[in-house]
């Protein structure tokens, strides 16, 4: 029964995604060109990886606002680390090292909230301020120039796994980041659904007492969930800064709201400990398709913010109403 419900919620999101895409494509056929499809996929990478991490924490029934600080700080530490050892970096260690830093940092949140039974959300507001600032107090400048970045990392920008020349003269390049997103999603799916610990994370969000009775240690599970969260946002962070080509602490701050929106849109529910990898991907797809097409569609610049807000609201309305109807039908 539960499984069926999940599939149905999922279906609603997919339908919504296709609906928006179809309407857009009718208005402007170029939306479905190879170039634009690749472009949209590239746009979704950061959001996707970070939202998957956010989901893991939300499944445990918490909510974390410090994601962008963790993201920024672990990217900073990774870049500095490369600087110190004088290594130009490579894609694999870049994600691994950043992920490790992120996991360690995020575990601080998990530890405090679990140890003192505080809400993770509340703790994260405090740690958000600390993570975002503490390392920069003593630095003359926290800026990292393009020259000082590990040069191999900068190649992330131009490395494509698929390259097509489309008719309009533009090239369709699928960025290597999509591999990271797919791998993260697959690994997370396996972890959450096929391992003991993963089931423990779902259990923790459902009923903390039951978790203990079954024999899971809530502290271990919380720490692991936060570590996964930290690793994901850190990977997203290093990807972001490699693409930016420079490091500035404040740059990433306003990416946070999209991540939260994608996670919640994707069906995450902290109150019930709900959330699935597929749902998140659908949520990210919807947010991306709304945000990455309006200029192509020719919406006047002044109206873009307004339109994004309105479309997200309508999208939420649509999916919720359908879900409610679904539940009512099932109730009968």
């Amino acid at each position: 029964m539960r499984k069926r419900a999940k599939i149905n919620d999922m279906t609603i999101r997919v339908v919504l995604f296709l609906l928006i895409l179809t309407v857009f494509a009718i208005i402007e056929p170029a939306v479905l060109s190879a170039t634009n499809v690749c472009s949209m996929i590239n746009d979704s990478i950061f959001n996707g990886i970070a939202a998957l991490g956010m989901m893991t924490v939300m499944i445990t029934g918490a909510f974390d606002l410090s994601s962008m600080s963790i993201s920024m700080l672990s990217a900073f530490l990774t870049l500095k680390f490369y600087n110190i050892i004088g290594y130009e970096g490579d894609f694999i260690t870049m994600f691994l090292i950043a992920g490790t830093f992120g996991a360690l940092i995020a575990m601080i949140n998990g530890f405090i909230s679990q140890k003192f039974s505080l809400s993770g959300f509340v703790v994260s507001i405090g740690t958000n301020l600390i993570f975002g600032s503490v390392f920069f107090i003593f630095l003359r400048s926290s800026y990292i120039k393009t020259d000082a970045m590990p040069q191999t990392l900068l190649k992330v920008r131009t490395t494509a796994i698929l390259s097509l020349q489309s008719s309009g003269g533009t090239a369709a390049n699928l960025n290597i980041g999509i591999v990271v997103l797919v791998l993260t999603a697959a690994a997370l799916w396996l972890f959450l659904n096929k391992t003991q610990l993963g089931r423990g994370i779902y259990a923790l969000g459902g009923d903390k007492v039951a978790v203990e009775r079954v024999g899971y240690d809530p502290m271990t599970i919380t720490l692991i969930a936060y570590a996964v969260f930290g690793a994901c946002v850190a990977i997203a962070g290093i990807y972001f800064y490699s693409n930016a080509g420079t490091f500035e602490p404040g740059m990433i701050a306003d990416k946070g709201s999209d991540v939260i929106a994608s996670a919640i849109f994707g069906g995450c529910n902290m109150k019930e400990g709900k959330g699935s990898v597929g749902g998140i991907l659908a949520g990210v797809a919807i947010i991306t398709v709304i945000k990455s097409n309006l200029i192509l569609l020719g919406v006047p610049v002044y109206y873009v913010t307004f339109t994004v807000g309105a479309m997200i609201l309508l999208g939420v309305l649509f999916s919720t109403l359908s879900e409610q109807r679904l539940q009512r039908n099932r109730g009968r």
């Binding site: 634009n36 472009s39 746009d43 950061f46 972001f240 693409n243 930016a244 080509g245 404040g250 740059m251 990433i252 306003d254 990416k255 945000k291 990455s292 097409n293 309006l294 200029i295 192509l296």
Partner: peptide, 12 residues
């Protein structure tokens, strides 16, 4: 305010 937004905008 960040290079990602301008990247998305410019592609479109």
């Amino acid at each position: 305010a960040n290079s990602d937004t301008s990247y998305t905008m410019a592609k479109q």
